[in-house]
Each structure stands twice: as structure tokens, then as C-alpha cells.
Amino acid sequence: MSCTEIIAEYGLRSLGFGERLLPRSDFTLCHQFTLIGSGLIWNIYFGVLALTFGFFLATGLALAKAADNPLIRKPAEWFIFVFRGSPLFIQFFLAYEALVMLPRAGVNIFGLTVQTSWVTSAWAGALFVLFLNTAAYSAEIFYGALRSVPKGDIEAADAYGLTGWHKFRRVLWPTMLRLAWPAYTNEAIFLFHATTLVFFSGFPAYQQRGDALYYAKFFADKTFNPFIPYPIAAFYFICITLALIGLFGVINRRLNRHLPQAHRPRLRIRPQIIR
């Protein structure tokens, strides 16, 4: 079988297209590259969606944590503490166990039957956990940035007569983002790395549709040779990391476009938040 045929058959295997059975006897380099790459689709899916949704929840949580009213502040503080203080691995497991307790037939809300059976599948359940998790980590970053917004900026906004939503949208939020961006870039990188945990606890692989590490482990177990599949997976993740650094760097330049060239903070990638 030529490599093009293998790509045609297994390229979208992780989504359920193409060959139904995983390879059983021939584990060529092409097979491994194709299947592990196919699994990467899930890592990207989880990473992109969780980051996108998590960004908005994180902004809200950061504001809530900075609020004076304890009724708003306390729940946000607890939410952030629980998700940042416990391993993602255990969060996945508990979330799965909690989700399967939902009644199968669906929940009846005001006469409408809401289907619940889909929430236990990885694409929904694990995404939900990752979303909450990244929201908690990002919220802590945004909260720190919010507290470091220079006093002068706020005074200037007051002097212009900006209040409420306008003050937030025009002054606080952009400054917060600018300050938080380097740390947020790290969060994004480590969130992508965390997506590899999805199929290791709780969530089952439906019809052997797994992520990159699921297939890497499949090959390592079948060929008894860890020296090929894991470096392939590592290679793919290095590519993702480089792409992320590039993308976030572009946004960083845009966020800081008003500053003189020399003052623009360079993105420094530090490992601050892995799970």
C-alpha cells in the first residue's frame, strides 16, 4: 500500500471516516505519521474551542474576583481555587462520573425534553472540563493583570468622563490584555498539551477515535517500540507550539502597536501553568 493510499484511508480515521479497523500487522512510518496526525485533529479541536470559550468566561471571572461585593467575589475565588488546585486528570474523571449520572432519557425542563446522552462523549464532556479549567487558569492571569493596570490609565479614563462599560471596554480591558498576553500565551500552549490527557481518564474512545497520544500509545503497545510513535507525537506538538507562539506573537504586536518600537514587550514564554 502506497503512502498516499494510507493517508486516504487513515487521514481522517480519528473522525470516523475511511478504514474502520486500525492497522493490525503493518505499522510503517507512514501509518504512524498518518494516524497520529489524524488524532491531532482532536487536540486542535479541544484546544481551539476551549481557549475561545474559556477566554470570555475568564474575563468575567477575573472581574468577579476583583469585585468588592463578596457575593460575587467568593464564588469566583472558589471556582478558580478548585480548578487550579486540583489535577486535570482527576477533574476529567470526576466530570465523567458526574455526567453519566444525568438521566439517560433526557431532562424535562418546562415541558421541553433536553437530551443528555451526548454530554458523556469526549467531544462534549472533555471539552467542557477543558473549558472550565482554562477559564480558571486564564482568570487568575487576567486578575493579576487587572490589578497591575497603571493607576494613571484609570485616572485618565476618569478625567475623560468614561464610566462603566465604556471605561472597561476602552481602557481597562485593552490594558489588561496587553499585560496578561505573555502569560496567556503560555496558558494556551499548556492547554494544548493538556488535551492529550482526555483519553487517559474517564472519557472512552468511541470507535477507537482518539487523539494523537491515543494513537501513539496504540502503536507503542502494538510494536513494543516507544522510540518511533512518541517522538512523532512530540514532533507534531512542537509544530503546534511554534504555530501558537507565532500566532500569539502577531496578536501581541497588535495589542502593543501604540507603543514605540523599543518599548514593546517581547513575548517571553515561561512555563507558568501546566496542569
Partner: peptide, 17 residues
């Protein structure tokens, strides 16, 4: 290197290697 690669990949790989 370590920054670019998920930690579990190392955990699965390093002990065996």
C-alpha cells in the same frame, strides 16, 4: 524541547527509553 512537548509524552517515553 520540554516546553514544546506535552509532559505525558515524556512520562510515557523517558522511563522506557
Amino acid at each position: 524541547m520540554v516546553r514544546g512537548v506535552p509532559d505525558i509524552v515524556f512520562f510515557l517515553f523517558v522511563p522506557v527509553a
